[in-house]
Design a protein around this nucleic acid. Structure first.
Length: 299
DNA sequence: AAGGCGTGGGT
DNA sequence: TACCCAAGCCT
């Protein structure tokens, strides 16, 4: 049993990551001094399954146009979906608009700072609620995203991959390491994510640049191949309903008036799949209309 | 609780 | 070229 040495090794991880982050944090919009809680919330929604580089320009445009929840709530869902452009998963734009409405109506236009109120907002799940609480309000709650999970899997557990998400266990592991000082906790939350995103990447990790390489359990074990349960793989996109939905949404975004049913038909040859995709969009509230009237974004 | 849900860059 | 991957959420 190497309990004492193991505890010491783990305890060394957070301060190293925090020190590394202080020197290596990228200059990102949401790290600017005075960046609003609303800005943090918008950025976190945009960053759900979308790379940083694609989010930055869209985020700045969005906040220029809608600098507060009230401003967005006063505009239409259609405008939100249009401004989302091709960021992907446009249901996020719809949810963000609905969240702005809820913040405007239920929270006097102020982004909530507690987990329960945040979780009650559409499009905000466990990760995003924690991220807003931690990064917008400095709450010392553990924040665990896919990058942090990979860092913990490797450095702490000696596994090359994180495997399927296990939220409770992942949060407990992060909580174990989280510094008690709120400022340090915030830096460790952000630093672990940054490390996973820029150094401890999924493929070809750059261990020579890693601040905790000599503390890393995976490295110490000789980088054993991962043999645990595999994370679920995302379905093929080409030819999928998602692709058809994407084509229809693009047509709706780019049209001033309703898009005629005949125009929709030209977007995809397979009628069954096309109708299924359209029905899904209607059900999701991303499109409204009927065959006779044509289809448009929700007002 | 497994699978649906966009899009585009990297290898 | 195909496939992988990305600050998840929802049902």
């Amino acid at each position: 049993m190497q309990g004492a040495g193991e505890e010491e090794r783990r305890a060394s991880i957070p301060p190293r990551v925090v020190a590394w982050f202080a020197q290596n944090a990228r200059d990102l919009p949401w790290r600017r001094p005075g960046f609003s809680a609303w800005g943090v919330l918008v950025s976190e929604i945009m960053l759900q399954q979308t790379p940083v580089a694609r989010v930055i320009p869209r985020l700045e445009q969005w906040l220029d146009r809608w600098p507060t929840p009230d401003a967005l709530a006063a505009d239409s869902p259609a405008e939100a979906v249009r401004a989302w452009q091709s960021l992907g998963y446009p249901r996020r734009a719809l949810a963000l608009h609905a969240a702005a409405m809820a913040i405007s109506e239920r929270h006097a236009g102020v982004v909530p700072d507690d987990m329960d109120a945040l979780l009650a907002l559409p499009g905000i799940g466990d990760y995003t609620a924690r991220a807003v609480a931690a990064f917008a309000y400095g709450r010392p709650v553990p924040v665990v995203d896919v990058n942090t999970r990979r860092v913990l899997a490797r450095a702490v557990h000696g596994q090359g991959e994180a495997g399927p998400a296990r939220t409770r266990a992942d949060l407990a592991a992060m909580q174990e390491l989280l510094p008690s000082d709120p400022t340090e906790a915030q830096a460790f939350n952000a630093g672990a994510m940054e490390l996973g995103q820029t150094v401890c990447v999924a493929r070809s990790p750059r261990c020579e640049a890693c601040p905790i390489a000599e503390l890393c359990a995976w490295r110490a074990a000789g980088y054993p191949a991962y043999t645990g349960p595999a994370a679920p793989r995302q379905a093929r996109y080409e030819g999928s309903d998602r692709q058809v939905r994407g084509l229809i949404m693009r047509a709706l975004r780019h049209s001033d008036g309703p898009v005629p049913a005949e125009a929709i038909e030209l977007l995809w040859p397979d009628a069954v799949q096309r109708e299924r995709a359209l029905a899904g969009l209607l059900r999701d509230g991303l499109a409204v209309g009927a065959p006779e009237t044509g289809y448009r974004l929700p007002d």
